[in-house]
Amino acid sequence: MKTNTTFYTNMILLILGAFIFAFCLSSCEDFFETTIDIEAPEAVPKMVINTFIQPNQDTVGMYVGRNFPLSSRESIDYLAINADITIDKLSSDTSISVAMVENFQNNQRPNNYVNSDVMEDFFESGQEYLLTARDIDEEYPTTISQVRFPTKTTITNTIYDYEGGIREDGDEATSFTITFNDPAGEKNFYEVAIIPDYNPNDNQTRIDYTSTIDLAATKGFEEDYILLSDESFDGQEKTIELKIFRRSTDNFTYHLLWRDITEDYFKYSKTLKTQSDLGDNPFASIAPVYTNVENGLGIISLYQEQIIPLN
């Protein structure tokens, strides 16, 4: 009997103690706070280099900047760094340097490094190049990129159809059927779009949103364009149908914008889109953006561009 009494007394004291304990805790405002600030990872300093080069260019422009902490909001105008930039043509001993633009004007953005005196045959189709960037102040690691011009594709046929059916979003469409020969034995990648009112002298030219249901196609960061990989049609003649929204007037010439691009650029564009699309998805982790700039960020893209009238 005595044991029972002691047991129940102890139990009551225990429960009472638990209530007092819980009461004390609840009076501490921060005790049940479930969000705490933690230290953000430190930024690893890197140079950012972006350039897009075609064969036979006599001027090469590029953006040379730096990354910056997540905690700051900085304008592109203040990100440039002072660097030595050289481009070596690997099949010969020739090289060029690209210098920072003095008195950089807003209309030159974002290419803050330019060489407007490139030798005529320096950038050649099929050739390989090494781009080296050294930070003069040595705050950022030296970057290197080795890239090769992709093979130029031959467009063998184009068909224009003003009343080209219905797009996948239900809008009436104008369609363009493009046939080309994919070079065999190598990975090839393309970026394609339709220009509705191309005029070389008009700076208002715009790309129309171009779509296709072809399974080899995908979208990159710039959604008006289509990206193509030849994984499923390597070395074959390929036909692809492109569609744009049907315009009410048809008194101009549609043009095909065709770019042979590198695998690096294909990955860069796709991963940049992926990161951009993830946005605030609570279940998604950030997706890394591809770069071919070793020790740095950005993209060195060598490509070949064709603009072909369609109608």
Partner: peptide, 26 residues
Amino acid sequence: ANSQYVTFHPRTLINERPNIANAEDA
């Protein structure tokens, strides 16, 4: 991500400026 940077797409047509994007380095 530990830093961010500015990058872009080459809209090389007719004086059109590249499409600038803010990316994060992970």
